[in-house]
Computed example of a mutant assay.
Amino acid sequence: MADDREGSRGCENRTDSEEDKCSDNDFETSKLGTKEYWEEAYQKELETFKDIGDVGEIWFGEESMSRVLRWMDKAKIPEDAAVLDIGTGNGAFLVELAKHGYRNLTGIDYSPASVELARNVLQAEGLTDVTVKETDFLSCRGELTDFDVCIDKGTFDAISLNPDNNKECKKLYVHTLKDAIKDNGIFVITSCNWTKEQLLDRFCEGFQFVQELPTPSFQFGGKTGNSVAALIFKRVH
């Protein structure tokens, strides 16, 4: 059964205190940032899906997908818009996008087991026109282009946790993203590791902030904060 809790993988609640406005090195790297971890995780989910048809965990929960879809409706994103799901995992978001009427969908993941799982899930839903590719986003600069919308739901978080040269990986992520999105195209990111302010700083060059999507808030010690940040950017030159 899918875990529908917000920020269910490696995410901890944070307040908007000064301590949260931290540098890139203020949280430790983790196995959650390694390809080996995700290949093992998705291999288990693939086996479970083949056994009992369970698609596995939904990163950030179903509400995280609904939140983005509601914004896309409000923004009147055309149904023929080219949409890229970065780090598609089990393909659950691609399924929801397709059911919502979007018909030019691509999902990528660097885990072979993830790609096989996503393809199996899509096939089970009768969604045969969705493209899923085994692609490492950090190693494909120039290969992904002309997307109207790019969506990241936890992939930048995982990259940020990579114990191997994650500073350079985060820079490479931004450069690859710039290449992938058309002028005036949209980038949607959901993160549990980074605050709104940190994401604004990370994507300040080549992107224009559009909107913050509302996410569940909490209070602790007189401070109000969010466990998840969800931001919309527009690609600009």
Rank of each mutant, 00 (worst) to 15 (best):
W194F: 15
Q43G: 15
E39V: 08
A92N: 05
E40R: 13
D80K: 03
D109M: 01
E40G: 10
L117D: 07
E134V: 03
Y42Q: 00
P214K: 12
F27E: 02
E45M: 15
A82L: 01
K35L: 14
K223Y: 14
C169D: 11
L144D: 04
A230K: 01
L127W: 09
S64K: 04
E96R: 15
G7F: 00
S191V: 04
L138H: 11
D146P: 07
I189A: 10
L105N: 04
V55S: 12
S66C: 01
D4M: 11
D146E: 05
R14G: 01
F60G: 02
D73N: 14
K133C: 12
P78R: 06
Y37F: 15
M1D: 13
C204L: 09
G222W: 05
D51P: 02
T34P: 09
E168V: 10
E39I: 04
N25E: 14
E6T: 10
A75E: 15
S227R: 07
C204Q: 15
N25D: 15
M1P: 12
Q208I: 05
F137G: 09
T145Q: 14
D16I: 03
R235M: 02
C150K: 07
G56A: 08
G7T: 00
T106Q: 01
R235G: 04
K182G: 08
K170V: 11
I108Q: 06
V121M: 09
V95E: 03
G87D: 02
P78M: 00
